[in-house]
Write a protein that binds this DNA or RNA. Structure first.
Length: 302
DNA sequence: AGGTGTCAAGCGTCC
DNA sequence: GGACGCTTGACACCT
């Protein structure tokens, strides 16, 4: 009898709590080209440290912070940073080979806003995210995750994206936009969907359909490796608040039903890499495996 | 040196 | 009508 091998890979978002920040910034009033250069260099150095830590700990899933380039989509940043730092980006891009690297623009990025200037800013922000991923020479399988909005306005905004941003865009279900309408919108736009388990529980759709079947349903939107998000309710906090740390039992249950599927799972927890390591232990990873060495390494169990 | 109000930005929700 | 929360902290000024 062949043992079921895990294909589920786990990772975390933006911050490693043990390492320096890759999101240093400055106040708009203090922006100068040289200050921006200093901070970009510093943030790329910090990112390199995080990537090497991830590699040493066998973590192959990571979300880049939107603040890697200060004012990356703002007129105040006039640098051709992708050009100036091209060799450095290429260097870090090599460290990312074999990893799932994505981004997730913040709450200010509202592609479906009724205000034209807000849509302009969202288009610029998404162009920035694409430019960032492209600077690392990451192909279109490396995605930009965005929440949905009213379908008609969202589609109108989508039409205005740069080709690169459109090719990387994926939609995520949330409390306002449950999985069913998000799948419908994503189908119209021809983009994949990130299944967020926690948001789905808060705003369910497809009544009675089990988690595994939902993940499989969503998998049909992907032509590259599927990304999912996992988090749980923070005890005692308002509904929807993310727990500080991995809920081990809930994750074990999740892994029990989808662990054999080829998923890249971003854990959305405050304690970041600690929970990622805990999740890996539950999946039976060996500590210190190199994720880019081979796919077989990642799937190996104790 | 350490504490803390504020910072580019949106918008729905809750009080 | 104002504060809060989001995926998320760091800067900059004050004592």
């Amino acid at each position: 009898m062949e043992k079921t091998r895990t294909q589920l890979r786990v990772g975390y978002a933006c911050v490693n709590t043990q390492l320096p920040s890759s999101a240093r910034t400055l106040r708009l009033a203090n922006v100068t080209p040289d200050r921006l250069r200093e901070l970009i260099a510093s943030n790329l150095d910090a990112l390199e440290t995080i990537l090497r830590w991830n590699e040493a700990h066998g973590i192959a899933v990571f979300r880049l912070t939107s603040n890697l380039i200060p004012f990356g989509s703002h007129a105040a940043n006039e640098l051709a940073w992708w050009d100036e730092f091209a060799p450095r980006f290429a260097e870090l891009g090599r460290l990312m080979q074999g990893m799932s690297i994505s981004t997730h623009p913040g709450q200010y990025t509202v592609l479906s806003s009724v205000r034209p200037e807000v849509v302009d800013a969202a288009v610029a922000e998404l162009a920035y995210h694409d430019r960032l991923l492209s600077a690392f020479r990451l192909d279109e399988s490396h995605k930009i995750v965005l929440h949905a909005g009213p379908p008609e306005r969202f589609a109108a905004g989508f039409e205005r994206l740069t080709p690169g941003a459109a090719a990387r865009l994926v939609l995520e279900n949330d409390e306002r936009w449950p999985l069913e309408p998000v799948l419908e919108l994503a189908g119209e736009l021809g983009v994949p969907v990130v299944f967020d388990v926690f948001h789905h529980e808060l705003a369910p759709s497809f009544p009675g359909e089990r988690t595994r079947d939902l993940v499989l349903r969503v998998s049909e939107t992907w032509s590259s490796r599927q990304e999912v998000h996992f988090s749980t309710q923070a005890p005692g906090k308002r509904p929807g608040a993310h727990a500080d740390a991995l809920d081990v039992d809930a994750f074990r249950r999740f892994a029990a039903v989808v662990g054999d599927l080829p998923l890249d799972c971003v854990l959305e927890v405050k304690d970041k890499e600690r929970s990622a390591l805990r999740a890996q232990e539950l999946l039976g990873y060996e500590r210190g495996r190199r994720p880019s060495a081979s796919a077989a390494d990642l799937r190996s169990r104790r």
